[in-house]
């Protein structure tokens, strides 16, 4: 059973690494930037894969665009903005905080505060009546 799971894990891990094409960059920095960007963009066709991981045709096209733009010396900010203009916040794995997603960002804190208030209110209301008779006898 252990071996089976080990084999299964191995099989899955190979899939994740399957990106076909390689691009030549003039500088090491550009190559790093390229790798960084494709790991931060979500494949619009897929549900939860970066364009670096996905082998969908669209991801391939988007990687090519990133490659072209990085080679042309464009900045990361501009490349992400280019993608965001076309595919919306969905393509960004680090979406901006804005009114439409305030709920997602702040609901956990909000719920936590409510729980905190409820707990504090309960604890505060509880009558602490130490059994003083026992203590004094011991002493």
């Amino acid at each position: 059973m252990k071996h089976f799971f080990a084999a299964l894990m191995l099989a899955i891990s190979f899939q994740v690494m399957a990106v076909i094409e390689t691009y030549e960059f003039e500088t090491e920095a550009q190559e790093q930037l390229y790798t960084e960007i494709i790991h931060e963009l979500r494949c619009p066709k897929c549900q939860n894969q970066t364009i670096a991981e996905s082998n969908a045709g669209l991801s391939e096209d988007l990687r090519y665009i990133v490659y072209q733009k990085v080679s042309a010396g464009e900045e990361k900010r501009d490349i992400l903005a280019y993608m965001q203009q076309r595919y919306g916040d969905f393509v960004l794995y680090d979406p901006p905080v804005k009114p439409s997603n305030y709920f997602l960002w702040f609901a956990p804190i909000f719920v936590f505060i409510i729980i905190l208030i409820a707990v504090l209110a309960r604890v505060g209301r509880r009558k602490v009546t130490p059994d003083s008779s026992d203590d004094t006898e011991e002493l």
Partner: peptide, 12 residues
């Protein structure tokens, strides 16, 4: 080459 479709935001 699909560039216009990318400008449109086509994903499928």
């Amino acid at each position: 080459d699909g560039q216009f479709a990318i400008d449109l935001g086509v994903y499928g």
